[in-house]
Structure formats: structure tokens, C-alpha cells
Design a protein around this nucleic acid. Structure first.
Lengths: 243, 243
DNA sequence: GCAGTTCTGTTTATGTTATACACAGTTCCA
DNA sequence: TGGAACTGTGTATAACATAAACAGAACTGC
């Protein structure tokens, strides 16, 4: 009664390595890890839409059905890919206090997402959390211990930074990799056409917003959030919260 | 050379109402707007995965192919749905300064996303911006005029708040609507099992994080970002930036 | 008022996808 | 030395987006 066959619990099991080891039968050429690793390679080079069971199977010169001996389905494969691509979070140097630690962490997250931008999409679903992904949450929460923030607030702060990175990554590949100025150009044209309806945006665009030199606000957002955390921490500890 | 047939430019055209009005032929029973409105209804009640051309066509008792007379394809339909569901952003009362205005705006965004949680998914793609969506960006940027923030920074601030709302919505429906404690329970079990690897998270969980009473940090994140903006604004204007 | 044009919705067909099911060969254990 | 267990395959199905050709409707110019 705890879980149906396709439920999240079973997806959790595979992710956390809870599976029986086979004792007989032919040596398998594949494994969940190998399948997931191949899928990550495909996603990195050809995008997530290219990750079909057939495409991944082709990496091993086997049929698509062969994969089903190792992963229950595509959803589970995406879960595995996500955790595998994230990898274990690096340790944080907390000797300088929470702020530089969280700054480093955010940059680390950014780099991982930049290497695997499709993670934004795989994590935009209801899905189980993997062991590596949890290490990424562990680090900032540990770094915020002793700041006066409650446990839930520490998690909230980490999630907030994470969501900032996600939104930054989402727009980055358009400008950087594909070099598709279509969107920006179309937006510029539209703003010119409807200048009276969007006066604020027209002004901002004149200031460089949406333009080729707009960095997307990664550093601005990071500073914003950290300043905000600092303000709250200062309120809790009486001003000594920045170290 | 500006745009292929399936490019973003054409998707922009439909979104902004740039299409020729037919003068002859049978009265159409459908229109892009009617199709999109039906699709929104399906997505609201059955989720975005239920939004297939067939399912939407069934709402009008026509075949799936009939829709292609009005929308170029599914991608364009999702664009239209998104803009339609967002609707025009409400005006903001800026008489109290930028902070209450942005607070109201963020709550408005939250409500719209709550009504149409699938927007999180439709907006996690490279896609053109619609006229309604632009009104949602216009409001906070206009509210931040005169704070000393540059135009791009005003946009960055709005995007930061938006990304916070998006991440909040993404987890909300799991707990609220579906009442699926599977994920949370699975996480609790895993944390118990690997307590030594995630000490910070275990402590936070003991504090109530991930639990049923954890509100997800909407207000915390909002306060964080606004405090951060205030700190930056104060630095720019010499301390008088909160009004 | 009528012929031609244009437009709508349908029919039919294609290619892609995930994945169920039964089978053949392989390896280990009793 | 035989099952039993296990792997990969062949075949089949159902859902999906969408292309192409067509039938009927309605307007426009004559």
C-alpha cells in the first residue's frame, strides 16, 4: 500500500541504490549507472530532447528495450541522470563565515548547471531527491548553522539561491551557445512598436537591459539575496551575524 | 534569412496578433484565442501533459488537424496559453514606495502561478515573450524607477522575485493538491538512514524543515530579496531609498 | 446569380515515441 | 546436468505531432 509500481517511492529506490544484486544469468553489459552516464553524454551534446530510449541504447549498440532491464522507464532515467550530473557537492570553506561560503556554493552550482543546462528541465518536475543532490543542499544549510536562522529558514535561503541560479541558466544558453539574437531582436522590435504601453521597459532597454551586454543579473541577484540574508541574520543575532 | 518557418520570429507573430484576417471561406468555429483558452482549461484541470492536440480539439468536437488551421503547432499553442493565462498584470500602487509595490506584485504573480501551475513548465523553454507577459515585467520595473538602480538592475530584481515565485510554485502543488507525502516521507526515511552524511539537513529537519508545517519559504524569500534590494538602493541613494 | 477563389475542417498517412510481452540464448546453482 | 534466473531481442501497441490531399462552404467579381 505504500507505493504502486510506478510511484515515486520506487524511483527513490533506484536512485539510492536499493536494488538486488543478480546472482545468475549472463553478465550484463549495462547497468543503471552506465545507462545514465551515456544519457548524460547525449543530453550534454544534443540536448535533453535527444535523450530517447532509442538514442541512449544506440550508445551501447543495443535495442531500446535492453535499457528496461536496468532502468524502469524514462522518468527514472532522468532522475538518475540528474543526480549523476550534479555529482557530489564540493566542501565549503566556512572559516570566513557564511557569506563567502554561500558565495562559493552559488558559483559552484552555477558551474554545474552550466555544464548540464538540461538539469533545469529535469528538475522542473515532481521527482525524488538523489544522494548527490542532497549533498548540494547539505553544504549551505551547514554553513548557515549558528547564524540565528531556523533550520527551515536555512533551507529556504539555499533554495532561494538555487532558484536564482536556475533562472540565470535558463536564459544563458540562448545568448551564449546558440547565438540566437532572434528573441532579443524580436523583443526590441516589439518594445519599439509598443513603446507607450511599456515605458518602464523601454527606459530600461535604453539603459542596456535585454541588450547584448546585459549579463543577466547573476551577480546582482546573488548580492541581493546575500544582503537580504545578512539583514535578517543581523536582526536575529544583534548585528554580529556576518561571520 | 531573418527567420525560418518554424523559428521564434513566427511564434512571436501569432503571439502579438500579427496575422491576416480572412475575407472569404466558411465561418471558422475556432480561433487562436479560443483554442488557447480551451487548452488552458485542459491544463488547469488535467495538467499540462493532458494538453495534446487531440485533447484540445475534443473540447470543440473537431479533429486534431483542425487546430492547425489556427495555430502553427503545439509549441505556439503553449506560448499562447502562457500569455493568455498570465493575463494583463494589475496596476501597482506605488504611492507607498517601491517596497510595498513589489510586495504586492510578487503576491499577484504567486496567485497567477497558483491558478495555473503548469506555467512553470511552459516557461522553462526558449520561447518568445507575449504582450501580457511583458505587462508583468513592466510593473516592477516602473516601480523601481528613481531608486538609483540602473535599468538592467531593475529588470534583474524583477526576474529574481519571479524566479523565487516559480520555485515556490514548483513544490507547492505536491503538498497541497495531490497530498502526496511520498516524497517528504521518502526524504525523511533517507535522512534517518544517512544521518551522518547530512548532519545539517537532519538538524534542519528536526527544526521542521521538509515537514508538513514547512511553508516553503515564500515570505522568507520575499523578505530576503526585498531587504537585499533595499540594501543596494540605500547604497546608491545615500540611505533614503525605501520610499 | 453564378463561377472561381479562398478558406475551413476532415481523411488519410507517416514517423517518432514509450513500453508491454513473449522468446532465445547464457550463466550459475543445486 | 538440469532447471532457474537473468539478459538482450523481436514484435506489437498505443499515443503523439504533423504533412498532404480533399470536400464543402462562403465570399467576390462579373
Amino acid at each position: 500500500m505504500t507505493s504502486e509500481n510506478g510511484g515515486l517511492a520506487s524511483r527513490m529506490d533506484l536512485l539510492w541504490g536499493r536494488r538486488a544484486q543478480p546472482r545468475r544469468g549472463p553478465k550484463p553489459t549495462l547497468s543503471p549507472e552506465r545507462v545514465a552516464r551515456a544519457a548524460v553524454g547525449v543530453a550534454d551534446t544534443e540536448g535533453l530532447t535527444a535523450v530517447s530510449m532509442q538514442r541512449v541504447a544506440a550508445e551501447f549498440d543495443v535495442t531500446a528495450m535492453a535499457l528496461y532491464r536496468h532502468v524502469p522507464g524514462r522518468a527514472d532515467l532522468l532522475d538518475l541522470m540528474t543526480d549523476l550530473a550534479l555529482g557530489e557537492a564540493p566542501a565549503l570553506d566556512t572559516s570566513g563565515g557564511w557569506r563567502p561560503a554561500l558565495t562559493d556554493w552559488t558559483h559552484h552550482v552555477y558551474e554545474v548547471f552550466r555544464r548540464h543546462p538540461w538539469i533545469v528541465e529535469t528538475t522542473t518536475r515532481v521527482r525524488p531527491t538523489g544522494p548527490y543532490e542532497l549533498t548540494w543542499m547539505e553544504r549551505p544549510v551547514a554553513a548557515l548553522a549558528g547564524t540565528g536562522l531556523t533550520g527551515p529558514e536555512q533551507v529556504d535561503a539555499a533554495v532561494l539561491l538555487l532558484s536564482h541560479v536556475r533562472s540565470q541558466i535558463q536564459y544563458a544558453p540562448v545568448d551564449a551557445a546558440s547565438r540566437t539574437p532572434e528573441v532579443a531582436d524580436g523583443l526590441a522590435a516589439v518594445l519599439r512598436e509598443h513603446a507607450d504601453e511599456y515605458p518602464g521597459l523601454v527606459r530600461a532597454a535604453g539603459d542596456g537591459a535585454f541588450g547584448p551586454d546585459d549579463d543577466g543579473g547573476f551577480e546582482f541577484g546573488l548580492r541581493c539575496v546575500l544582503d537580504g540574508i545578512a539583514a535578517i541574520v543581523a536582526g536575529r543575532t544583534g548585528g554580529g551575524g556576518d561571520g
